Simulated scan of single mutants.
Amino acid sequence: MKKAFITGITGQDGAYLAKLLLDKGYEVHGGVRRISQPETVRLEKLGVAKDVHLHEFDLTEMNNIFRTIRDYPVDEFYNLAAQSFVGTSWELPIYTADADGMAVVRILDTLRTLKPDTRFYQASTSEMFGLVQEVPQRETTRLYPRSPYGVAKVYGHYITMNYRESFGMHSSSGILFNHESPLRGKEFVTRKITLALAKLAKGGSDPVVLGNLDAKRDWGFAGDYVEGMWRMLQQDVADDYVLATGVTTTIRDFIRFAAEALGMEPVFSGEGIHETAIDAKTGKRIVEISEKFFRPAEVELLIGDASKAEQNLGWKATVSVQGLAQMMAKADYDELA
């Protein structure tokens, strides 16, 4: 039986990955932050909360990392934990650098010391491309991060590559473009949209308040993307891979897809901070714009080229952005009382 350790196991990706690995016969361990009661709702929704072994794990504490890896040696280590909200990284830039950047080398160096044959996966991100230098973005595209989050992730990405090249470790990075699901945190824009629209469809009156509706993202389904993570660590030779759908969609269109899935007819009017949207069927205002949700430095366009992953890993996204928006909107609607 293979053993795996997942940091961030209680998050969206961690929960889907835990289920995938359990289904493949792994013994699954996971790292959780020290809180009075671990938040296991995502694991519970997927029916695997009782099947994983949880351990206190702090990305910023070297001794804790060392002891955990010493006491629970594994075949595969997936580092998914991070300060993962881009907007918050401007408020917590030093913590973000520590948790998303320095934590990676803490884990890698501990593995190098204690169990260098462990296969390591680092959760890199399309936010590293930031002010994009090439369209679409691929593994060789120059990085130009536009947030403290993106900058910290660049360090984690390059140190993963460095330990692979310097010490022969099987360390790979997945440069994942936006991947969402019904398990997505409510602070992320896609889930914020689908939850607010579901409440409106249930009779609520509060519109979803957003920032730049023109921002374009490459959105896929998280359940697809964890399969790609696993496939990277099954390769004989470690490498870095972009995982993406190859389709870019504005936030405005994501709203439209989610609203239509709930039987609404969204109609947009105005421009910039004065743009709004109403449901033509009910006359309800469903979208408003607020300056506070604009980023200090915006990432305008992200679209990935996953041809390397398709060729080498046999991986391809299976859920369209329309299907994703529909899945999330209906899940939120069904969960509301």
Results as ranks from 00 to 15, higher is better:
106 R>Q: 06
134 E>K: 15
227 E>T: 11
300 E>Q: 08
80 L>A: 02
185 G>D: 15
278 I>A: 00
190 T>E: 12
50 K>Y: 01
313 L>H: 03
228 G>M: 07
172 S>R: 04
296 P>N: 08
277 A>D: 03
85 F>A: 06
44 E>M: 10
306 A>Q: 04
94 I>T: 09
122 Q>D: 07
62 M>E: 12
151 V>N: 00
120 F>E: 03
314 G>S: 08
82 A>P: 00
278 I>M: 04
276 T>S: 09
280 A>D: 10
89 S>T: 10
290 S>I: 02
175 I>W: 08
97 A>I: 01
5 F>G: 03
26 Y>F: 15
119 R>E: 09
255 I>E: 01
193 I>N: 02
227 E>I: 13
129 F>L: 05
99 A>C: 12
32 V>A: 09
305 D>W: 04
49 A>H: 13
144 Y>C: 10
113 T>S: 10
12 Q>P: 05
313 L>D: 03
54 L>V: 09
59 L>Y: 07
312 N>G: 00
327 M>C: 05
190 T>R: 04
246 G>K: 09
186 K>S: 12
19 K>C: 07
255 I>N: 00
227 E>W: 03
52 V>T: 09
49 A>C: 04
160 T>W: 05
144 Y>W: 06
46 L>R: 11
53 H>L: 13
133 Q>T: 14
304 G>T: 11
139 E>L: 05
253 D>F: 00
260 E>V: 11
179 H>M: 06
265 E>T: 11
100 D>W: 01
308 K>P: 01
130 G>K: 04
88 T>A: 13
71 D>E: 15
233 L>I: 08
12 Q>N: 15
40 T>Y: 07
190 T>M: 14
88 T>L: 13
188 F>E: 13
219 W>M: 14
116 P>I: 08
144 Y>N: 15
336 L>F: 10
134 E>C: 06
117 D>T: 15
192 K>E: 12
322 Q>F: 06
157 H>F: 14
85 F>T: 02
165 E>P: 00
279 D>W: 05
278 I>S: 03
12 Q>L: 11
158 Y>H: 14
